[in-house]
Amino acid sequence: EKWRYAFEESLTEVQGVYATKFKEEIEANSDHEVLLFPYGTLGESADIMEQAQAGILQFVDQSPGFTGSLIPEAQVFFVPYLLPTDQEHLSRFYKNSKAINEDFKDLYANQGLELLNMFPEGEVAMTTKDPVTGCEDLNEVKFRVMTNPLLVESYKAFGAIPTPLPWGEVYGGLQLNIIQGQENPTFFLYSTKIYEVTDHITYAGHNNFTTAVMANKEFFDGLSPADQKVVNDAAAAAYDYIVSYQQGLAEQELDKIKKAKPEMTVTVLSEEQRSCFKDAAKDVEAKFIEMTGDSGKAILDQLKADLKATM
Protein backbone atom coordinates (compact mmCIF):
# COMPACT_ATOMS: atom_id res chain seq x y z
CA GLU A 1 0.00 0.00 0.00
CA LYS A 2 1.12 3.58 -0.64
CA TRP A 3 1.13 5.85 2.41
CA ARG A 4 1.54 9.59 2.06
CA TYR A 5 3.45 11.74 4.53
CA ALA A 6 3.60 15.56 4.36
CA PHE A 7 5.71 17.91 6.46
CA GLU A 8 6.45 21.62 6.88
CA GLU A 9 10.12 21.76 5.93
CA SER A 10 12.24 20.76 2.96
CA LEU A 11 13.62 17.26 2.55
CA THR A 12 17.05 18.12 3.95
CA GLU A 13 15.82 19.96 7.03
CA VAL A 14 15.09 18.28 10.38
CA GLN A 15 11.48 17.29 9.67
CA GLY A 16 12.56 15.98 6.26
CA VAL A 17 15.39 13.93 7.79
CA TYR A 18 12.95 12.44 10.32
CA ALA A 19 10.47 11.66 7.54
CA THR A 20 13.15 10.04 5.40
CA LYS A 21 14.23 7.79 8.28
CA PHE A 22 10.59 6.95 9.03
CA LYS A 23 10.06 6.02 5.38
CA GLU A 24 13.16 3.81 5.34
CA GLU A 25 12.04 1.99 8.47
CA ILE A 26 8.54 1.35 7.17
CA GLU A 27 9.77 0.15 3.81
CA ALA A 28 12.41 -2.10 5.37
CA ASN A 29 9.96 -3.78 7.74
CA SER A 30 6.82 -4.06 5.63
CA ASP A 31 5.77 -4.06 1.98
CA HIS A 32 4.19 -0.62 2.27
CA GLU A 33 5.62 2.35 0.46
CA VAL A 34 5.81 5.88 1.95
CA LEU A 35 5.63 8.88 -0.40
CA LEU A 36 7.09 12.09 1.02
CA PHE A 37 5.67 15.55 0.38
CA PRO A 38 7.93 18.39 1.55
CA TYR A 39 6.96 21.98 2.32
CA GLY A 40 4.51 23.57 -0.06
CA THR A 41 3.99 20.64 -2.41
CA LEU A 42 0.48 19.92 -1.09
CA GLY A 43 -0.28 23.31 0.46
CA GLU A 44 0.65 25.07 3.66
CA SER A 45 0.76 23.77 7.20
CA ALA A 46 -2.97 24.16 7.83
CA ASP A 47 -3.80 22.48 4.51
CA ILE A 48 -1.75 19.34 5.07
CA MET A 49 -3.20 19.11 8.58
CA GLU A 50 -6.74 19.13 7.16
CA GLN A 51 -5.76 16.60 4.53
CA ALA A 52 -4.38 14.33 7.25
CA GLN A 53 -7.55 14.75 9.31
CA ALA A 54 -9.61 13.81 6.25
CA GLY A 55 -7.50 10.73 5.59
CA ILE A 56 -6.17 11.98 2.27
CA LEU A 57 -2.74 11.87 3.88
CA GLN A 58 -1.82 9.07 6.25
CA PHE A 59 0.93 10.99 8.09
CA VAL A 60 1.61 14.63 8.80
CA ASP A 61 4.20 16.66 10.68
CA GLN A 62 2.84 19.87 12.12
CA SER A 63 4.44 22.05 14.75
CA PRO A 64 2.23 22.87 17.74
CA GLY A 65 2.73 26.54 16.95
CA PHE A 66 0.50 26.05 13.92
CA THR A 67 -1.82 23.67 15.75
CA GLY A 68 -2.77 26.43 18.19
CA SER A 69 -5.82 27.40 16.18
CA LEU A 70 -7.07 23.81 16.38
CA ILE A 71 -5.85 22.80 19.83
CA PRO A 72 -5.27 25.96 21.91
CA GLU A 73 -3.36 24.02 24.58
CA ALA A 74 -0.65 23.27 22.01
CA GLN A 75 0.52 26.85 22.41
CA VAL A 76 2.03 25.85 25.73
CA PHE A 77 5.25 25.19 23.81
CA PHE A 78 5.55 28.95 23.31
CA VAL A 79 5.66 29.77 27.01
CA PRO A 80 9.23 31.12 27.33
CA TYR A 81 11.70 29.29 29.56
CA LEU A 82 9.32 26.39 30.08
CA LEU A 83 11.55 23.95 28.21
CA PRO A 84 15.24 23.55 29.11
CA THR A 85 18.00 24.06 26.54
CA ASP A 86 19.75 20.83 27.57
CA GLN A 87 19.12 18.54 24.58
CA GLU A 88 19.70 15.33 26.57
CA HIS A 89 17.10 16.34 29.10
CA LEU A 90 14.72 17.28 26.31
CA SER A 91 15.11 13.97 24.55
CA ARG A 92 14.21 12.09 27.76
CA PHE A 93 11.35 14.48 28.39
CA TYR A 94 9.60 14.08 25.00
CA LYS A 95 9.89 10.32 25.26
CA ASN A 96 8.52 9.96 28.78
CA SER A 97 6.28 12.95 29.38
CA LYS A 98 2.76 12.08 30.53
CA ALA A 99 1.50 15.44 29.28
CA ILE A 100 2.66 14.60 25.77
CA ASN A 101 2.08 10.89 25.58
CA GLU A 102 -1.28 10.89 27.35
CA ASP A 103 -2.83 14.38 27.59
CA PHE A 104 -1.81 15.66 24.18
CA LYS A 105 -2.46 12.25 22.64
CA ASP A 106 -6.09 12.61 23.74
CA LEU A 107 -6.34 16.18 22.50
CA TYR A 108 -5.03 15.12 19.08
CA ALA A 109 -7.32 12.08 19.09
CA ASN A 110 -10.30 14.43 19.45
CA GLN A 111 -9.16 15.98 16.16
CA GLY A 112 -9.02 12.59 14.44
CA LEU A 113 -5.26 12.25 14.76
CA GLU A 114 -3.02 9.65 16.35
CA LEU A 115 -0.02 11.40 17.90
CA LEU A 116 3.06 9.31 17.10
CA ASN A 117 5.82 11.54 18.40
CA MET A 118 6.78 14.99 19.50
CA PHE A 119 10.41 15.87 19.04
CA PRO A 120 12.67 18.91 19.48
CA GLU A 121 14.14 20.80 16.54
CA GLY A 122 16.61 22.80 18.55
CA GLU A 123 16.97 25.95 20.58
CA VAL A 124 15.38 29.01 19.04
CA ALA A 125 17.83 31.81 18.30
CA MET A 126 17.07 35.43 17.57
CA THR A 127 18.74 36.97 14.54
CA THR A 128 18.77 40.72 14.38
CA LYS A 129 20.31 43.69 12.61
CA ASP A 130 21.67 45.19 15.84
CA PRO A 131 23.29 43.32 18.75
CA VAL A 132 21.00 42.10 21.53
CA THR A 133 22.30 41.80 25.09
CA GLY A 134 19.02 42.31 26.91
CA CYS A 135 15.39 43.33 26.56
CA GLU A 136 16.30 47.01 26.17
CA ASP A 137 18.01 46.21 22.85
CA LEU A 138 14.73 44.91 21.45
CA ASN A 139 13.05 48.22 22.16
CA GLU A 140 11.47 49.58 18.93
CA VAL A 141 12.76 46.56 16.97
CA LYS A 142 10.18 45.26 14.53
CA PHE A 143 10.48 41.57 15.22
CA ARG A 144 8.90 39.03 12.91
CA VAL A 145 6.87 36.33 14.64
CA MET A 146 4.61 33.56 13.38
CA THR A 147 0.95 34.56 13.35
CA ASN A 148 0.35 33.17 16.83
CA PRO A 149 -1.16 35.18 19.68
CA LEU A 150 1.10 33.83 22.38
CA LEU A 151 4.22 34.53 20.37
CA VAL A 152 2.99 38.06 19.79
CA GLU A 153 2.50 38.40 23.56
CA SER A 154 6.00 37.09 24.23
CA TYR A 155 7.74 39.62 22.06
CA LYS A 156 5.53 42.39 23.33
CA ALA A 157 6.61 41.40 26.83
CA PHE A 158 10.27 41.38 25.69
CA GLY A 159 9.79 44.99 24.58
CA ALA A 160 9.93 44.48 20.80
CA ILE A 161 7.27 45.40 18.24
CA PRO A 162 5.99 41.96 17.26
CA THR A 163 5.28 41.92 13.53
CA PRO A 164 3.43 38.87 12.23
CA LEU A 165 4.57 38.16 8.67
CA PRO A 166 4.16 35.10 6.48
CA TRP A 167 7.44 33.22 6.08
CA GLY A 168 7.67 34.07 2.38
CA GLU A 169 8.10 37.76 3.20
CA VAL A 170 10.71 37.41 5.93
CA TYR A 171 13.87 37.34 3.82
CA GLY A 172 12.82 40.33 1.74
CA GLY A 173 11.51 42.14 4.81
CA LEU A 174 14.86 41.80 6.58
CA GLN A 175 16.78 42.76 3.48
CA LEU A 176 14.68 45.87 3.04
CA ASN A 177 14.72 46.64 6.78
CA ILE A 178 10.94 46.43 7.11
CA ILE A 179 11.65 44.12 10.02
CA GLN A 180 14.87 43.98 12.03
CA GLY A 181 14.68 40.58 13.62
CA GLN A 182 13.20 37.08 13.62
CA GLU A 183 13.63 33.81 15.54
CA ASN A 184 14.16 30.20 14.49
CA PRO A 185 16.27 27.12 15.31
CA THR A 186 19.91 27.36 14.22
CA PHE A 187 19.71 24.87 11.35
CA PHE A 188 16.84 26.89 9.87
CA LEU A 189 18.88 30.10 10.03
CA TYR A 190 21.42 28.44 7.78
CA SER A 191 19.16 26.48 5.45
CA THR A 192 16.83 29.42 4.75
CA LYS A 193 19.74 31.88 4.37
CA ILE A 194 18.31 34.26 6.93
CA TYR A 195 21.88 34.88 8.13
CA GLU A 196 22.54 36.73 4.86
CA VAL A 197 20.19 39.51 5.86
CA THR A 198 20.86 39.77 9.61
CA ASP A 199 24.11 40.44 11.47
CA HIS A 200 23.73 39.10 15.01
CA ILE A 201 22.65 35.77 16.43
CA THR A 202 21.54 35.75 20.04
CA TYR A 203 20.73 32.78 22.26
CA ALA A 204 18.52 33.77 25.16
CA GLY A 205 17.48 30.18 25.87
CA HIS A 206 13.84 31.22 25.86
CA ASN A 207 12.50 28.42 23.74
CA ASN A 208 13.03 25.14 21.97
CA PHE A 209 11.21 24.47 18.74
CA THR A 210 8.88 21.50 19.09
CA THR A 211 7.21 19.56 16.32
CA ALA A 212 4.73 16.68 16.24
CA VAL A 213 4.18 13.72 13.91
CA MET A 214 0.71 12.30 13.59
CA ALA A 215 -1.21 9.65 11.69
CA ASN A 216 -4.80 9.85 10.62
CA LYS A 217 -6.60 8.11 13.48
CA GLU A 218 -9.11 6.16 11.43
CA PHE A 219 -6.31 4.91 9.21
CA PHE A 220 -4.16 3.98 12.20
CA ASP A 221 -6.96 2.24 14.07
CA GLY A 222 -7.81 0.29 10.93
CA LEU A 223 -4.30 -1.12 10.59
CA SER A 224 -3.58 -4.69 11.61
CA PRO A 225 -1.75 -4.98 14.96
CA ALA A 226 1.34 -5.98 13.01
CA ASP A 227 1.19 -2.86 10.85
CA GLN A 228 0.51 -0.66 13.89
CA LYS A 229 3.67 -2.08 15.42
CA VAL A 230 5.59 -1.31 12.22
CA VAL A 231 4.40 2.30 12.37
CA ASN A 232 5.14 2.73 16.07
CA ASP A 233 8.55 1.10 15.73
CA ALA A 234 9.38 3.30 12.75
CA ALA A 235 8.36 6.39 14.74
CA ALA A 236 10.50 5.29 17.69
CA ALA A 237 13.48 4.53 15.45
CA ALA A 238 13.10 7.88 13.66
CA TYR A 239 12.91 9.62 17.05
CA ASP A 240 16.17 8.09 18.25
CA TYR A 241 17.74 8.86 14.90
CA ILE A 242 16.65 12.50 14.85
CA VAL A 243 17.83 13.06 18.43
CA SER A 244 21.31 11.76 17.63
CA TYR A 245 21.29 13.51 14.23
CA GLN A 246 20.73 16.78 16.03
CA GLN A 247 23.61 16.28 18.45
CA GLY A 248 26.04 18.95 17.45
CA LEU A 249 23.83 19.96 14.52
CA ALA A 250 23.34 23.49 15.83
CA GLU A 251 27.13 23.90 16.23
CA GLN A 252 27.80 22.53 12.75
CA GLU A 253 25.25 24.82 11.16
CA LEU A 254 26.59 27.73 13.17
CA ASP A 255 30.07 26.96 11.82
CA LYS A 256 28.67 26.97 8.29
CA ILE A 257 27.09 30.36 8.94
CA LYS A 258 30.36 31.75 10.33
CA LYS A 259 32.24 30.37 7.35
CA ALA A 260 29.80 31.95 4.91
CA LYS A 261 29.67 35.21 6.84
CA PRO A 262 32.67 35.70 9.15
CA GLU A 263 31.43 39.07 10.46
CA MET A 264 28.33 37.45 12.00
CA THR A 265 28.37 37.77 15.80
CA VAL A 266 27.07 34.98 18.02
CA THR A 267 26.09 35.78 21.60
CA VAL A 268 24.89 33.46 24.32
CA LEU A 269 23.27 35.64 26.95
CA SER A 270 24.45 35.31 30.55
CA GLU A 271 22.04 34.48 33.37
CA GLU A 272 22.01 38.14 34.33
CA GLN A 273 21.29 39.29 30.78
CA ARG A 274 18.43 36.82 30.62
CA SER A 275 16.75 38.08 33.76
CA CYS A 276 14.43 40.56 32.05
CA PHE A 277 13.38 37.93 29.48
CA LYS A 278 12.61 35.57 32.33
CA ASP A 279 10.58 38.23 34.13
CA ALA A 280 8.60 38.81 30.94
CA ALA A 281 7.98 35.07 30.66
CA LYS A 282 5.77 35.19 33.77
CA ASP A 283 3.35 37.56 32.03
CA VAL A 284 3.25 35.28 29.01
CA GLU A 285 2.52 32.26 31.16
CA ALA A 286 -0.37 34.15 32.79
CA LYS A 287 -1.62 35.08 29.33
CA PHE A 288 -1.50 31.43 28.28
CA ILE A 289 -3.65 30.40 31.24
CA GLU A 290 -6.04 33.26 30.54
CA MET A 291 -6.38 32.05 26.94
CA THR A 292 -6.76 28.34 27.58
CA GLY A 293 -8.40 28.18 31.04
CA ASP A 294 -8.30 25.16 33.31
CA SER A 295 -7.30 22.61 30.71
CA GLY A 296 -4.37 24.78 29.67
CA LYS A 297 -3.28 25.18 33.28
CA ALA A 298 -3.53 21.42 33.85
CA ILE A 299 -1.30 20.71 30.85
CA LEU A 300 1.17 23.38 31.92
CA ASP A 301 1.43 21.94 35.43
CA GLN A 302 1.77 18.41 34.09
CA LEU A 303 4.54 19.50 31.71
CA LYS A 304 6.42 21.12 34.57
CA ALA A 305 6.06 17.96 36.65
CA ASP A 306 7.26 15.81 33.74
CA LEU A 307 10.26 18.06 33.22
CA LYS A 308 11.21 17.70 36.86
CA ALA A 309 10.74 13.93 36.71
CA THR A 310 13.04 13.58 33.69
CA MET A 311 15.83 15.83 35.03
Partner: peptide, 18 residues
Amino acid sequence: PPSIGMIIYGVVSNTSIA
Protein backbone atom coordinates in the same frame (compact mmCIF):
# COMPACT_ATOMS: atom_id res chain seq x y z
CA PRO B 1 15.64 41.39 -7.06
CA PRO B 2 13.65 41.13 -4.98
CA SER B 3 12.31 38.03 -6.68
CA ILE B 4 9.86 35.76 -4.91
CA GLY B 5 10.72 32.91 -7.29
CA MET B 6 14.39 33.08 -6.30
CA ILE B 7 13.55 33.24 -2.61
CA ILE B 8 11.46 30.08 -2.90
CA TYR B 9 14.17 28.35 -4.95
CA GLY B 10 16.83 29.41 -2.45
CA VAL B 11 14.89 28.01 0.49
CA VAL B 12 13.94 24.74 -1.21
CA SER B 13 17.40 24.06 -2.64
CA ASN B 14 19.47 25.46 0.20
CA THR B 15 21.13 28.07 -2.00
CA SER B 16 22.28 31.56 -1.10
CA ILE B 17 19.44 33.92 -1.94
CA ALA B 18 21.76 36.93 -1.96
